[in-house]
Simulated scan of single mutants.
Amino acid sequence: MRNLLHLERLREGRILLAFSGGVDSTTLFHLLLENKIAFDIAHVNYHTRPSSDEEALSAQNLAQRHNLHCYNHSCRLSGTNFEHHAREERYRFFEYLMGKYHYTYLLTAHQLNDRVEWMFMQLTRGAGLPEMLGIRSLDHRGEITILRPLLQHSREEIEGYLEQHNVNAFIDESNYDERYTRNRFRHRFSTPLMHEHADAIRRSFAYLEEDSDLLIDEIHFEECEGFFWGNNSDNLRSTIYAIDRVLKSIGILMSSHEKEELKKEKSAIISRQYFVIIDEAYTFIAPYHRDVIMDKGFREECRRLRIEPKLRGFLYGSPKAYAIIRRLKGSLTLPLSD
């Protein structure tokens, strides 16, 4: 159980651990100590349970006992889709810390059961191999590089480690609430399956990840003022997968219908909020602005540069993004706003 993925990276980098105080992150905390990895922790208190304040204080005390720094963030979220808003809130916090204090890697304590649960959920939604793999041991979210050192260990192994070392962790009561989709898959499918076939499932994910790396090209997107652009791959599947990841990073989920439209038409309006076009050499993703009144000179230059009309409303209000797309399309004149 002591072995962690990406151990060499962990020893070389400056590490920030996303720490909830639950079973998984507590185990990772102690395994990092065992492996003599230098790290600090970041804890987010959403105030959703009676024990929330106790968990935040416990994280602070645990860090102090081991001479680590603990960054605490307190917030109260309202509205629907709490899980999505909570994820966005904590990653904004993590990104701020990593930029300000120059951490190399963010560590999260996802483990093998999480990966199985994700795969089952994707199967029921209609997904390809890269989407089903979902959680990877080395990943990126914007400018953050994420490592998941526990991804090869099962929940059973992790709970056994805590019991063996007599380490306490907080239990989130909501994990037993089957109103949450993930919990239904956990209790009805992944837990029994992992109990009997953990070793085979671990090997299968390693093979699937190798296969996915061969099938999908890595595409890097740049961003400016909410405008994203990246080189197209010769493999359309890779391009659409990269688009999907960019949109997910800003909280937009593409439906199966939108993905099929994008595949056929090479452009689509996503969730009525973003317009995506797979152009000749580049893919562009921009907020979708309707009914924008534009001056004649701007419209004429967009026509000459063959800029898709559905992009123009946003570009008209964003000179920086407009300059980028003009450069990418080969224009040598200065933007009209200059």
Rank of each mutant, 00 (worst) to 15 (best):
L112H: 08
L4M: 03
S255K: 07
L328N: 00
Y176I: 06
E210V: 12
M121F: 03
L62P: 09
L10A: 04
D172N: 13
E196I: 14
I269H: 07
E12Q: 08
V292I: 15
G128D: 15
R203Y: 14
N235E: 09
S52W: 13
N166H: 11
G297M: 15
E117Y: 00
D338G: 13
Q152F: 04
R202G: 00
G297W: 10
A86Y: 07
E8T: 02
G22K: 12
L68G: 03
I277K: 06
A18T: 01
K263S: 09
I240T: 06
L208H: 00
A63N: 09
S337I: 04
K259H: 09
S25C: 10
A63L: 10
L33N: 08
R49Y: 14
G317L: 03
V167M: 14
E260D: 11
S58Q: 14
T104S: 12
R182H: 07
D24E: 15
M98W: 05
L17E: 02
D291A: 10
A206T: 05
K100C: 07
S51C: 12
H195V: 02
L97K: 00
Y101A: 03
E55N: 11
T191S: 13
E55H: 12
V44F: 01
L28A: 01
T26Y: 06
Y180D: 09
Q152T: 14
L138M: 12
L247I: 08
A321I: 07
R304M: 14
Y274Q: 02
K266D: 06
Y282D: 14
S58N: 13
M254S: 11
D338S: 08
T104P: 00
K329F: 14
A109P: 10
L328P: 05
A281H: 15
L247C: 05
R90G: 03
S20M: 05
R203L: 06
H165Q: 11
H43S: 06
N35T: 01
N35D: 06
D24A: 04
N35H: 01
D213N: 09
F29Q: 06
G99S: 08
L208A: 08
S174M: 06
G128V: 04
L16K: 10
N67A: 14
G126H: 02
I216K: 00
I250E: 00
G251N: 09
P50C: 11
P335H: 02
H85R: 14
A109V: 08
E178Q: 08
A281V: 10
V44Q: 08
N3S: 13
Y176W: 01
H220Q: 08
H47S: 14
E34A: 03
I285R: 12
D213L: 08
I41W: 01
R155S: 12
Y207F: 11
I252K: 03
E131R: 13
L32Q: 04
L33H: 03
A56H: 05
G313D: 00
E156G: 08
M121Y: 02
L16W: 02
C224I: 13
R49V: 07
V116E: 11
Y105T: 08
R49W: 12
R299P: 04
I307V: 15
H84V: 13
Y71G: 09
I252D: 06
R49D: 12
